[in-house]
């Protein structure tokens, strides 16, 4: 086992069962998944639709608790945290980028970026939000509302909102899924640059081209971790890493 210190996150025997109380509806969406991610890694989570990628990401993002297994983020065991503590972990340690930008429609770009800081109780929120917008190249659009921005710009605002609290972990669920390929590439360039600066990057995607931008890939199918390794090997059908798959 690696030491906890060097891990951004560590998942051990993670299981997520939807509707566990109703056998006829129960779904084992994530089934005994174990892996660790070091600080500063870039990891693609790939696999067929319905395989459990999003479910896994929600657990990694502290939006839901595993049914069983343990999940440590920055050394803290999430399963044992209260709802408030989970909210704080999401606020300070994690940034989300979803397929849809999910901006508040009647707020300007900078107000949207300020939102996490409001819940953090941070000072100088506007300045920090403007910095974050600057970082994603949208400083001139700070006062624009979502309906005045293009799809790529909306996603940049969402990224600015994700990084404004300077999280150690950036979780993306198909962040380019709704964009044309050129805009998508620009967004990926941006995420890659953030990763180079030290932010751990986890990206759920079904698009091999997107996945290839990440150095490592996890393949999830039927809730199980089917492969874990350098992206090229995983995409080209290599088996899971021996250490994680328990000697496959």
């Amino acid at each position: 086992m690696e030491t906890v210190d060097s891990n951004a996150l560590s998942a051990q025997h993670l299981v997520k069962i939807y509707n566990p109380d109703r056998p006829e509806l129960a779904v084992r969406a994530v089934d005994d998944v174990s892996f660790t991610v070091e600080r500063g890694e870039s990891v693609a989570i790939v696999g067929p639709s319905g395989g459990g990628k999003s479910t896994l990401m929600y657990m990694l993002g502290c939006l839901s608790r595993p049914t069983s297994g343990s999940y440590l983020i920055d050394g803290r065991d999430v399963a044992r945290l209260s709802d408030d503590a989970l909210a704080e972990v999401r606020n300070r340690h994690i940034g989300f980028v979803f397929q849809a930008a999910n901006l508040l429609p009647r707020r300007t770009a900078v107000e949207n970026v300020m939102l996490p800081l409001a819940y953090a109780g941070a000072r100088g929120a506007r300045e920090r939000a403007l910095e974050a917008l600057e970082r994603v190249g949208l400083a001139q659009r700070a006062a624009h509302r979502p309906n005045e921005l293009s799809g790529g710009q909306l996603q940049r605002v969402a990224i600015a909102r994700a990084l404004v609290t300077r999280p150690s972990l950036l979780l993306c669920d198909e962040p380019t899924g709704a964009l044309d390929s050129r805009t998508g590439r620009e967004i990926l360039d941006l995420l890659e640059a953030l990763n180079r600066e030290g932010t751990t990057l986890l990206m759920v995607t079904h698009d091999a081209a997107v996945a290839r931008r990440m150095r490592r890939a996890l393949r999830i199918g039927d809730g199980r971790l089917e492969a874990d390794g350098p992206t090229e090997e995983v995409l080209d059908g290599a088996p899971a890493r021996a250490s994680d798959a328990g000697g496959g």
């Binding site: 993002g61 508040l104 939102l115 819940y119």
Partner: peptide, 16 residues
């Protein structure tokens, strides 16, 4: 509802 979910994702506590 979506707005509430988004707020929770960026760190809103239940009491917020």
């Amino acid at each position: 509802t979506r707005e509430i979910g988004l707020r929770m994702a960026v760190g809103a506590r239940r009491r917020n």
